[in-house]
């Protein structure tokens, strides 16, 4: 039963892992032998300005974008948690954007937000001036956050499942204690769905680190070919930079970048799992 997986694991996972780890310590181009240079690639990586830019963009997306995305997903789920007529229609409407492939939503939002596009027309209707989303470094990342938030359907469904699982008796007990709406949300809902929130934050962080498609489509639209000048530099993600080095034939360096990506993913995962008890309310114990 396991035979195909074992073969596949060796050929498509284990061998590439060993290979790319080795290459990350070498100068490597396809068609030539790898030449050992020790930690040079990693040293170069740490002193690379573009990398700093990409990481700053990533941190921005994580700190500003993720709470917006998770917050709105939670709001959508909370509004639909109790069975009511019409919920199904809303749930479908909220979910549909997340089945739109990322490059398609990238192309769509590029069209929506660009100069003279529908959004700027809407701004005109209200006599306001639309931001130059892609030409202005300050607005490029908010545009990215907007597409990401539009496609929050998966998150909403996960929260919805979490909310439905909360026993009604907890809310009834809170009612008896005279708790208001906010108090119930703060002291019942939030702790009870904290395992779900934890999971979405963890996968969200990893997702931000690996984000590529929409930023790539945006920056291709702004200017073909270049990556790191402005304004497209404000869209630069780590994965875009890694791909650029790969396509320019710096395979050893691209491998080093990939391993740094893995280390960051690993550290985030371990750090979050290790501090899990502080974030997540476990079933026993008091609710306050």
């Amino acid at each position: 039963m396991l035979a195909p997986w074992i073969i596949g694991f060796c050929v498509f996972t284990l061998y590439p892992i060993v290979n790319s780890l080795y290459w990350s310590f070498t100068v490597k181009r396809y068609g030539t032998a790898a030449r050992w240079i020790g930690l040079k690639n990693y040293e170069l990586l740490l002193s690379n300005d573009d990398l700093g830019k990409a990481l700053r963009n990533t941190v921005y997306l994580a700190i500003v974008g993720m709470p917006i995305r998770i917050g709105i997903a939670m709001l959508c789920a909370a509004l639909l948690a109790r069975p009511r007529r019409g919920n199904g229609v809303y749930r479908t409407l909220f979910y549909v954007p997340s089945i739109v492939p990322a490059v398609a939503s990238g192309a769509l939002f590029y069209f929506l937000l660009k100069k003279g596009g529908p959004v700027s027309s809407l701004f005109d209707l209200f006599g306001a001036e639309a931001p130059l989303w892609f030409a202005d470094p300050a607005w490029a990342k908010p545009a990215l956050i907007m597409v990401g938030t539009w496609a929050l359907g998966d998150l909403m469904l996960i929260f919805l499942a979490g909310l439905v699982d909360i026993p009604r008796s907890l809310y009834e007990a809170a009612d008896l204690d005279g708790a208001g709406r906010w108090a119930k949300f703060r002291h019942v809902t939030l702790p009870m769905i904290s395992p779900v929130t934890f999971f979405t934050v963890l996968t969200g962080l990893i997702g931000v680190l690996q984000s590529f498609d929409q930023a790539f489509v945006f920056s291709q639209g702004v200017r073909r070919g270049r990556l790191t000048g402005e304004p497209e530099g404000s869209l630069l993600t780590y994965a875009m930079l890694q791909l650029r080095h790969f396509q320019d034939g710096r395979i050893g360096f691209a491998a080093a970048m990939a391993w740094v990506m893995f280390v960051i993913t690993f550290v985030i995962t371990i750090a979050m799992l290790a501090t899990r008890r502080r974030w997540v309310h476990t079933a026993s114990g008091d609710l306050a």
Partner: peptide
Amino acid sequence: LPFQVLFVS
């Protein structure tokens, strides 16, 4: 494991 680690090889 990020896809990036695998695809270079």
